[in-house]
Simulated assay, not measured.
Amino acid sequence: MDKFYNDVLYKLETAINELEIEVDYSIQRIEAVIDTILKCLSELKEYVLNRGFKSIKEEIHFFKYQKPAIVSKLIYYNAIYKIETKKPYGAKPIKKYLNNELRKLKRYFDNNLEFYKYYRTNNSFIDDKLFVRGKYDIKLSLDTFYFEADHRFSTSHDYKVAKIIANDLIQVYLEDQLLNTAYQDKSTDLPKLNWTSSKTAMIELIYALHSQGVFDNRNADIKVIAKTFERIFNIDLGDVLPYVYGT
């Protein structure tokens, strides 16, 4: 099992690294990564169903450490996809939005505190209930997800482990985003720059930058770029706005 798993994990991480480099569009990159992880899990599941495990010890190790390491990547990228596609515009709305996402992570932590302690202190005294297929205890804070999962490839707590690993990564991502937002917010304290050339020159610059895809990995709407330029350079595009807004 270990050799097959290590080969699968290596191929997955290599594929993710290549996608991080090759795909320009951030949303498309995340979609491609998620698809790659799903294919990897499908391959892993087929192996487990066909080969099984040599011992209970091997089964526990797989569902406690190996499978969660891959599923956590799926949870992480899916969460980032949702965060990015729902993110509002403006520093203050973004800050509020990101802090709310952090509060969701905190609620999950609070609701699963006992299991966090068990897992992070590397306890093992009830591993045979948590990480062996077909064995579960309804009293051990089961996620509804477990009852809907394929029990041939799931235990009562392997998904919860993956969630813990993913939430740590999501928290780092959110905190980095908050730092970036705070930096951008502080930049508004800088002296104002006034655009002293023609409005047409600005509109040509906006179109050039948009066509080059220099903002948000080509995902920035030209309307947002135009509004940002108006605010930063203290200018009202006025009669040239229709050309930007496509009206």
Rank of each mutant, 00 (worst) to 15 (best):
D7Q: 13
V240M: 08
I203W: 04
V33A: 05
N167S: 01
D221F: 15
N50K: 13
D2N: 11
N234Q: 13
S154H: 14
T85I: 13
V8I: 09
A79G: 01
S154N: 15
F125L: 11
Y118I: 13
E101I: 01
V214N: 14
V244G: 01
E230L: 07
Y10A: 06
V8C: 07
Q184D: 07
K106T: 14
Y47C: 09
S187E: 09
F147V: 00
Y146F: 05
A79Q: 09
P242E: 06
T144L: 08
K186H: 08
I83G: 07
T155Q: 04
T144K: 05
F153P: 04
D128P: 10
R218Q: 15
E18C: 03
S211A: 15
I126Y: 14
Y47Q: 08
T196C: 00
Y108A: 00
D110V: 07
D150F: 14
K87D: 01
Y89P: 02
Y97S: 00
F63Y: 15
E84L: 14
F4R: 06
L174A: 10
N50M: 08
M1A: 14
V161R: 03
I70W: 00
L174S: 10
K92W: 03
T181D: 02
L102Y: 06
D176Y: 12
D185T: 11
Y97C: 01
D189P: 00
T247C: 12
R107W: 03
I30L: 12
K67A: 03
A32F: 10
F229G: 08
